[in-house]
Design a protein around this nucleic acid. Structure first.
Length: 164
DNA sequence: GCCAACGTTGGC
DNA sequence: GCCAACGTTGGC
């Protein structure tokens, strides 16, 4: 019997995180140093709060390709850090520059995301065909939130669909 | 290019 | 604090 199995342990969470493949594709993530990228550029308070308040190291991440010819889930990743100030908000040369954010009170945060593996491209129509996934935010019309929570049931269903 | 959805801005 | 106008996202 595993002695450690009785120790209290915070449950992991699951997330879907959108990335435009022109900006950072699943292949870009795989090739990044340590196969890890800082998830910079989030400028939405709800998405920021997910990173700040709910993400833990080791949380599962569905890497989603958005605004591209074949939108859908392209790979699996994991949360590799807790949230810390997003440096790009203070860089005037960055498209993510926020002149209203102060150095001593950073408005925007990011976590690091680490590559786990590429999957086949799981398309939106395929996801819509699964009743278990019907409630996913990414399937709702007009959804713009770039980070959304995924339930354990949705996660299990998606992993099964992604089996090679 | 269209358009639905939704966050942000700014006048009052 | 309200709310109309505007801008952005993002699938189709």
């Amino acid at each position: 019997m595993d002695t450690f199995s009785t120790l209290p342990r915070p449950p992991l969470n699951y997330w879907l995180m959108k990335s435009e493949p022109d900006e950072c594709s699943i292949d870009d993530l795989a090739r990044a140093p340590h196969a890890t990228v800082p998830w910079i550029g989030v400028r939405n308070y709800q998405a920021r709060n997910f990173m700040r308040d709910a993400m833990r190291v080791g949380d599962g991440v569905l890497f989603y390709h958005s605004s591209c010819p074949q939108p859908g889930i392209a790979g699996l990743a994991e949360v590799a850090s807790t949230a810390y100030p997003d440096a790009s908000q203070f860089d005037p040369a960055s498209p993510y520059h926020d002149p209203k954010s102060a150095q001593d009170a950073p408005r925007w945060l990011n976590v690091d995301v680490r590559f786990l593996r590429k999957t086949r491209l799981l398309s939106l129509p395929e996801m819509r065909a699964e009743p278990v996934l019907a409630g996913m935010r990414v399937l709702q019309a007009g959804n713009r939130l770039s980070i959304t929570p995924v339930t354990a049931a949705e996660w299990q269903c998606l992993l099964a669909l992604l089996e090679p």
